[in-house]
Structures are given as structure tokens and as C-alpha cells.
Write a protein that binds this DNA or RNA. Structure first.
Lengths: 131, 131
DNA sequence: TATCTAGTAGTAATCGTTACTATTATTATA
DNA sequence: TATAATAATAGTAACGATTACTACTAGATA
């Protein structure tokens, strides 16, 4: 029942540190460069286990493929609609606002909020300069 | 190029009014009861067109199937984790809070926010009573 | 050193959704 | 009213992300 060391899992952790909010197949393609035998299923299984244990974060952007994040710190994701880059947002004020939203929703619906899913889309400053 | 009247589209609109935040296949199954020849593809195509034209709302809940909403009024969705019911939340305060979140994110990331996706999960008062 | 079993590679299967194609039916027009 | 033009449909194939399955591999354990 004890966990075993696995070279594949280590490669996945390494890829997660090097890549920026990667998808499972981005990780797969990356590892394949140095270890062509890696299996996509192995990548998915390890990511799933890591996400479940809280070691990493699974980010779901609408109907696009899930992305994964080694930064498990509480933060919000923002995607540029043009270049696709993912930005992180955090801060005390943001956290306060979210608590207030929870309260407002609990009051009007009677639902006791336990989880929230949110991400934002817009145009990053880089892309705005190019137009 | 002009749009044509279609009995199928009317049935879909009717189902959207009767059902509560239905998925495409819930609509499909519903219509099939009275019109067994309806095609799932037709349901998807019409829902897609209606969502694109702004006639209805497409709601994406993580990796679950998309749901559709005849209520195009600006509001937030809350799902009960236990019974799956979808609740609507809205209000002036909520809208203000979201504007503030936009501002906070724009300030820290430099991304000019254009769209936001958010939904909340928790336990509704009905389900809380039963435990 | 033999055994046990977590973890893997590779592939099949699933699910929601879109794409494709031959057919049907609604509108405009002769 | 008949007919031509073409939206829209039914039915099915294809797709992309993900999970499930199975035989095999390789660390750990006794």
C-alpha cells in the first residue's frame, strides 16, 4: 500500500515546474522528447492522483482541456483571449470580495457555498499594445 | 439566407421553457416523448445557434455536459452538490462585487477583463434539512 | 533470491459534441 | 398552383479529452 518512487511521476513533476499551466498532453509531449516511451495514460493517472491529494491544482477552463498548476496557493486564473497566456491573480482584497460574494449568494439562494469555480478572460497588456 | 420556421426549433424553445437549466440530451429525451424522430444533432445545432445569437445562455459546469438557460438576464449559477439542482443568484450588490473583482484583477495582472465564468457549489437548504 | 504488488505502456472504450451527407420541407418565384 | 432554390433535418460517422483495462515491469519486502 505504500507509495513507490516512479521515474515517470518525477518527470511529470519536473514538467509541471518548467511549463506554465500545462495541459496533460503538453506535459506528455514535453516528456516524450527525452523519454519517448512515456504513456499518455500514465500522465493522466499521475496528474489525477496528484490533484486529488492536493499536491497540484486542476484548472478547468470551460470546454477546453484541463490544465494543471504546481502553485496550490489560493489564486484566480485569467486567460488572454488573444495569446492564450494564463495569468495568476491574488491578494487580500480579492479574497475579501469572494467571501462577500459567497455571503450574498447564500443569502439570496439559501445554498451554503463550499466551492467556487471562476476564471476570467480578456486581453493582456502585451496583446493590447499590438493593435 | 433568411431563417426558416422549423417545428423542431419551436419544440426546443418549448422544452427550454419547461425544463430547468437542461442539458442538450435532457431536451432531446424530453422532445422524443412526443416526437420520437427528433435528432440529437438537431438539438445541438439549434442550441448552439440560439446561444450564439444571444437568444439563450450556454452554461458550462466544469467537465459536466453544458446546460442551457432561457433566462439571458445577467445572473450567477449555484449548484447543490447533493441534489444537483441549479439555483439562480442575482442582485445589485452581487453585480457591484463582480465589477470590483474585475478591477482588482486588471490592476494586478494588466489584463483587461471582457468575460468571466463563474459558478458556485454547495448544499441547498432542502438537502441540509435532510441530515 | 523469490515473492508481492504498485506502477507502467499500450490500447480500447466512453462521453459530450461536432461534422458530414443524403433527404425533407419551407419559402420565394414563374 | 407548380416549381425551383436552399434552409434545416435525420441519421450516422468522426473527434478530442479522458478513463478503463490488461498484460507486463520493476521496486520493495521477507
Amino acid at each position: 500500500m505504500s507509495k513507490r518512487y516512479s521515474a515517470q511521476k518525477m518527470m511529470i513533476e519536473d514538467a509541471l515546474m518548467r511549463l506554465d499551466h500545462p495541459t496533460a498532453s503538453e506535459i506528455y509531449e514535453d516528456i516524450k522528447k527525452t523519454y519517448p516511451n512515456i504513456s499518455l495514460g500514465t500522465v493522466y493517472r499521475n496528474l489525477g492522483l496528484m490533484a486529488e491529494s492536493g499536491e497540484i491544482l486542476r484548472i478547468t477552463f470551460g470546454n477546453q482541456p484541463d490544465r494543471f498548476d504546481i502553485n496550490t496557493h489560493d489564486h484566480i486564473h485569467v486567460i488572454c483571449k488573444k495569446c492564450g497566456e494564463v495569468f495568476d491573480a491574488e491578494g487580500k482584497r480579492l479574497k475579501e470580495l469572494i467571501v462577500e460574494i459567497d455571503e450574498s449568494i447564500e443569502e439570496s439562494t439559501g445554498v451554503h457555498i463550499e466551492n467556487r469555480t471562476m476564471y476570467f478572460q480578456g486581453i493582456c497588456s502585451n496583446c493590447r499594445e499590438q493593435s
